[in-house]
Simulated assay, not measured.
Amino acid sequence: MTDSLASTLRARMVSRYVELRGKLERIVGSRDDAADAMQETWLRLAAMGDAGTVHNADAYLLRMAANIATDGYRRDSVLLVRGEIDALVHLVDEAGDPERIASARSDVQALSQVLARMPTRRREILVAARVEGLLNSEIALRFEVSLSTVEKELRAALEYCKKHLPDVDAVQRGHFAGPRHN
């Protein structure tokens, strides 16, 4: 790019900055990203070599800034945000070692045996709540029982599990609950 063309484009950018940034903001969806791209455009104009002619300075500047913003978005979307980095640094390895895997399998087998000894409706209500994640009201509709019956059956099922699985820490702490709908 010749010095006169670079100077012309930079002068045009200064005189139309607010309008160009506003258009770019609508393209990229962020005022900060648009401002950053405009700043980078300014720097690149100063560093560019010879280029041909520019017929529409505004369109040229806007396209250049949009490309810069797109490149920045692509670059940043690969990187983690600051909070994710902190979370990963402090992440506990949940992948079990052989001892933990064997212990978990043993716990699951013991739980299966306890569930098999439970009355059918109680077991099905517990599974609906803790495995399927249904709300008590949804369980009541499914089994055509009252809400208080569901609550009583759940309490009884949990107490039964605690009583018959004393060596399973998750059961004793009550952490064997699955996700429940909100």
Rank of each mutant, 00 (worst) to 15 (best):
G83A: 15
V150C: 01
A11K: 09
G29W: 00
E144F: 05
S146C: 05
V54G: 00
R63P: 05
S77A: 15
E124H: 09
H175V: 06
G133C: 02
N136H: 02
R74N: 12
D76C: 07
S15Y: 08
H181T: 07
D71M: 07
E138S: 03
E25K: 10
R10T: 11
D107A: 14
A35P: 04
R12T: 15
L20N: 04
L154Y: 01
R12G: 08
T8F: 06
R75D: 11
D167C: 08
Y160S: 07
V131F: 04
T149V: 14
P179T: 15
E151C: 08
G178R: 09
R100H: 13
R82V: 08
T8K: 13
A46E: 13
Q109K: 10
D50R: 06
K23D: 11
R31E: 13
L165P: 01
Q39F: 12
V171I: 15
L111R: 06
S148Y: 01
R26K: 10
G133Y: 01
A110Y: 00
A102Y: 09
L80S: 11
A110I: 03
D169I: 05
S4E: 15
I139E: 00
D167I: 07
T53V: 12
D33A: 13
G29P: 00
C161V: 14
P98K: 08
L88F: 08
D107M: 02
R74M: 10
Q172K: 04
G83Q: 15
E138P: 01
D107C: 07
A156C: 06
R26F: 07
G83I: 04
G22T: 13
L24C: 03
L134S: 05
E153M: 09
A104T: 06
R123Q: 13
E124F: 03
I85K: 10
A129R: 11
H90A: 14
A177M: 12
L80R: 10
E138A: 03
W42R: 08
S146T: 15
G96A: 08
G72N: 14
A140L: 00
